[in-house]
């Protein structure tokens, strides 16, 4: 067996990395970050925890012609839904 490759934990990403991981243009992500649709993100800091949100918003905009604000609102609801599902599982 070959030597194992060492993986590093990534908490913060650059906007470019996050855009590449979401398969969107950097500009797409940057505009939404600057409009405040990604809580806590800025031009220089993008938490890797926001990637799932970016993918959801991309899909909603691409597939349902949602405006960025509507996609963000729906992402908020889905995130709350995720949180409630986890809490329910933990409480069972």
């Amino acid at each position: 067996m070959k030597d194992a490759l060492t993986a590093c934990l990534v908490e913060e990403m650059t906007i470019e990395e996050a855009a590449a991981a979401t398969f969107v243009e950097v500009e797409w992500l940057l505009v939404r970050v600057e409009e405040g649709l990604f809580p806590g993100a800025s031009r220089s800091h993008f938490s890797s925890r926001l990637l799932a949100r970016a993918r959801r918003m991309r899909d909603l905009e691409r597939n349902f012609d949602a405006s960025p604000e509507l996609a963000a609102l729906f992402a908020d609801i889905l995130e709350e839904n995720d949180e409630l599902k986890i809490r329910l599982r933990c409480a069972e």
């Binding site: 067996m1 194992a4 993986a7 590093c8 934990l9 990534v10 990403m13 991981a21 890797s48």
Partner: peptide, 29 residues
């Protein structure tokens, strides 16, 4: 064959430097 550091969490991104070809990194979620 990947050495996973302790402390990974759900949704965590881990980076394998230089494993994507052409100098890119492989990011695993």
């Amino acid at each position: 064959n990947v050495k996973i550091p302790k402390g990974v969490h759900e949704g965590q991104i881990i980076r394998l430097a230089g494993q994507a070809g052409q100098g890119g990194d492989l990011l695993l979620e």
